Amino acid sequence: MKTAPLIAALATSVVAQTTTTSSPTTEFTLQANNITAIFIPYGARLVSLQVPDRNGRSTDVAVGYDNSSMYPVDTATNHTYFGAVVGRYANRIKNHTFTIDGNTYNVPGNEHGGLNTLHGGNVGYDQRNWTVLAHNDSSVSFSLLDTSFENFPGTVLTTATYSVSSYPSGPQGQPRPRLTTKLVSVALDLPTPIMLSNHIYWNLNAFQASNILNDTYIWMPYSDRYIQTDGILIPNGTFGLTSQNPGLDFQSPKRIGAAVDQTSGHDYCGTNCTGIDNAFILDRPANIGADSVVPVFHMWSQTTGIQMDMSTNQQGIQIYTCVSQNGTIPVKPSQLRNSTGAAQYINPYGCIAIEPQAYIDGINNPQWGVDNLEIFSPETGPSVNYATYDFSTF
Rank of each mutant, 00 (worst) to 15 (best):
M1S: 12
P5G: 06
A8S: 15
A9M: 11
A9T: 10
V14P: 09
Q17P: 04
T18M: 15
T20E: 14
T21N: 14
F28G: 02
Q31P: 07
N33E: 14
I35H: 01
I40H: 01
Y42T: 03
A44Y: 05
V47N: 06
L49R: 05
Q50N: 13
Q50F: 08
P52R: 01
R54K: 15
T59R: 12
A62F: 15
D66C: 10
D66I: 05
S69P: 01
P72E: 11
D74L: 10
R92A: 06
H96D: 11
T97N: 09
T99D: 03
T99A: 07
T104A: 06
Y105R: 13
G114N: 06
L115W: 10
N116S: 09
T117S: 10
Y125L: 07
D126G: 03
Q127Y: 07
Q127R: 15
W130A: 01
T131R: 15
V132M: 10
S138W: 06
S141P: 03
D146P: 08
S148H: 12
F149I: 12
N151M: 10
F152W: 07
L157R: 01
Y162E: 08
V164E: 03
Y167E: 10
P171C: 00
Q172E: 15
T180K: 15
L183D: 06
D189R: 00
P191W: 02
P193V: 15
M195F: 01
H199S: 00
N203G: 00
S210L: 14
S210N: 14
T216E: 08
Y217Q: 04
P221V: 07
G240Y: 13
S243H: 09
Q244R: 03
D249Q: 07
D249I: 12
D249T: 08
F250W: 04
A258K: 09
A259N: 02
T263A: 01
T263E: 02
G265A: 13
H266I: 04
H266E: 11
G270H: 01
N272C: 09
I276V: 11
N278A: 08
I281T: 08
L282Q: 08
P285D: 09
G289R: 11
G289M: 10
Q307K: 15
S311Q: 12
Q315A: 02
G316D: 05
I319M: 10
Y320N: 06
T321E: 00
G327M: 09
P330F: 03
P330L: 00
V331N: 06
R337N: 13
T340A: 12
C351M: 10
A353P: 05
P356E: 04
G362S: 01
G362H: 04
G362Q: 01
N364I: 02
P366K: 09
G369P: 03
I375H: 04
I375W: 03
P378M: 11
S383T: 05
F394M: 14
